[in-house]
Computed example of a mutant assay.
Amino acid sequence: MKATFAVLFVAGLALGAASARAQSEPPVELTGTLAKARASGAVTIAHRESSIPFSYLNARKEPIGYSIELCKLLVEAMGASVGKELEVKWLPVTSATRIEAITSGKADIECGSTTNDIERRKLVSFSPTIFVSGTKLMVKRGSPIKSFRDLAGKTVVVTAGTTNEKAMQEITKRFKIAFRLVVSPDHAHSFMQVVEGKADAFATDDVLLYGLIALNVAQKDFEVIGEFLSYDPYGVMYRKGDAQMERLVNETFHALAEDGEIERQYKRWFLRKLPSGASIDLPMSPQLETLIRTMATKPD
């Protein structure tokens, strides 16, 4: 893989620090994920198969997407840090298995559409925020469901292991709305539950709903409705308690934001045509613009 400006920037930070220590201190010993990468010559990326346009499979069954491209750049920065080009190995995961893939060491980083929340931070660490989304509902056009208040007596599908499941459980408790909640193994399967009439609505992050509708060229058949039912900032997951990896991740995303690479990747995956020919056509939100500007400021 070709080194980008951002990766060279991160490598420069490491080399600059190393030269300052060269005459008086021994080299810093690699630990954690970076030591593992140096020893194995590889990084294992956990990826999703239907989280469009973040992490999904193209026609050749290869992982592609917004999160995937940012993670490839992170792997380049890891390689620059350990002094060798690193092979990328791929591990498919679902919403239910992604956290365990990181905590068990099966994968080194997870690149998908994973919300950074308090409960998950007890188990794993996250990169700076790369996207901001929230739970909404997808229904068939012409459906009487216009918001969560219309769900009484209906069937709502959610994907296992997502924050959306918790959000819908809180809705039924808080507003005393009785609906049937069914759990599906992945987003593609959840989408098909509505297509086949087995569920009246699919509750997940709005951007994933737009992505599935675009991929299936189904804008005339389905729509995303209602207000946001949760706040979901996405990040790249990696192992908790790894100080060297945390520093590298933060420096890399600072460099990618400062160089404009995150914005370029956003335009590529959210505003232009996807490899399938469909387009989500989703401008960057003011919240994400602010977060990226903040990310571009020099980290401590």
Rank of each mutant, 00 (worst) to 15 (best):
G260S: 12
A203V: 06
L215I: 08
V43T: 09
L15R: 13
M237P: 07
G79P: 09
S19I: 13
T97Q: 06
R60E: 14
V182N: 08
E223M: 13
I130C: 04
T44D: 06
T290F: 10
E251L: 12
H254K: 07
S285D: 08
A22V: 09
S51H: 04
S285A: 13
I145A: 04
R174M: 11
I64G: 01
Q287M: 13
L13G: 13
D300R: 06
F9W: 15
P299K: 11
A107F: 05
L91W: 02
T204H: 01
A14P: 01
W269M: 12
I102H: 11
A203Q: 03
L208I: 14
F131L: 12
S40R: 14
R149L: 13
T114R: 04
D206P: 00
L70G: 05
L229T: 03
A3C: 09
V124D: 04
I213E: 00
L13I: 12
P92Q: 11
M245Y: 03
T297W: 05
S184W: 02
L291T: 06
P185C: 08
R247V: 01
A218W: 00
A107W: 03
K176P: 01
S230Y: 05
F5K: 11
L86A: 10
I45S: 11
S184V: 10
G16T: 10
R149H: 12
R268Y: 07
R293Q: 14
R38P: 03
R247L: 02
M245C: 12
R98W: 03
H189F: 06
N116D: 14
D300I: 10
Q23T: 05
C111N: 03
R174Q: 15
K72Q: 11
A17G: 14
S104R: 08
Q23W: 01
R120L: 04
L13R: 11
F9I: 02
E76W: 04
T294R: 15
F5E: 09
F175V: 08
P27I: 08
E289V: 13
L256E: 01
M192Y: 11
E223A: 15
L181A: 07
A77R: 09
I52C: 06
V194K: 00
T94Q: 06
G65C: 03
R239I: 08
A178S: 11
Q287S: 11
L70W: 01
S50G: 09
Y238F: 15
A243P: 03
H189Y: 14
A3P: 05
V182Y: 07
V10E: 07
F222R: 04
V75R: 02
G226S: 09
L282E: 13
A214Y: 00
K198R: 15
R120S: 01
R149D: 10
Y66H: 14
A96H: 10
L282V: 13
T115S: 12
A278D: 08
S24T: 09
T294Q: 14
